[in-house]
Measured scan of single mutants.
Amino acid sequence: MKVIFLKDVKGKGKKGEIKNVADGYARNFLFKQGLAIEATPANLKELE
Rank of each mutant, 00 (worst) to 15 (best):
E17T: 06
L47G: 08
T40G: 04
L35S: 04
A22D: 15
A39V: 08
V9S: 02
Q33S: 07
D23T: 15
K32H: 09
I4F: 08
L35V: 05
I18M: 06
F31A: 01
L35K: 04
G34W: 05
L44T: 08
K14A: 09
E38W: 07
L44A: 05
D23A: 15
E46D: 13
E38R: 09
E17M: 06
F29I: 13
T40W: 04
I37N: 02
K14G: 06
I18G: 01
V3K: 00
L6F: 02
A36S: 02
V9L: 06
I37D: 02
N20W: 15
G24D: 15
V9Q: 02
L30I: 01
V21T: 03
Q33Y: 15
L47D: 07
D8H: 08
N43D: 06
K15Y: 05
G16A: 02
M1A: 05
N43L: 11
K2N: 10
K7T: 11
Q33G: 07
Y25F: 10
D23R: 13
M1G: 04
E38Y: 05
E48W: 10
N20R: 14
A39I: 05
F29L: 08
N20M: 15
F29E: 12
F5T: 01
A39H: 05
G11H: 08
G24Q: 13
A36M: 00
L44I: 14
G13Y: 13
N20G: 08
K15A: 12
A26P: 02
K45N: 09
A26G: 05
G13W: 13
K10H: 12
K19S: 06
G24T: 14
E46R: 10
A36R: 00
L44G: 04
T40N: 08
A42L: 11
N20L: 15
L47S: 08
E38S: 06
L35R: 02
G16S: 04
K12G: 14
P41D: 13
M1S: 05
K19V: 13
F29Q: 08
M1F: 08
G16T: 02
M1P: 04
L47P: 05
F5K: 00
K2P: 09
Q33T: 09
E17P: 00
G24R: 12
D23L: 14
A42Q: 13
T40D: 06
R27W: 11
I37Y: 04
K19W: 08
K19I: 10
E17H: 04
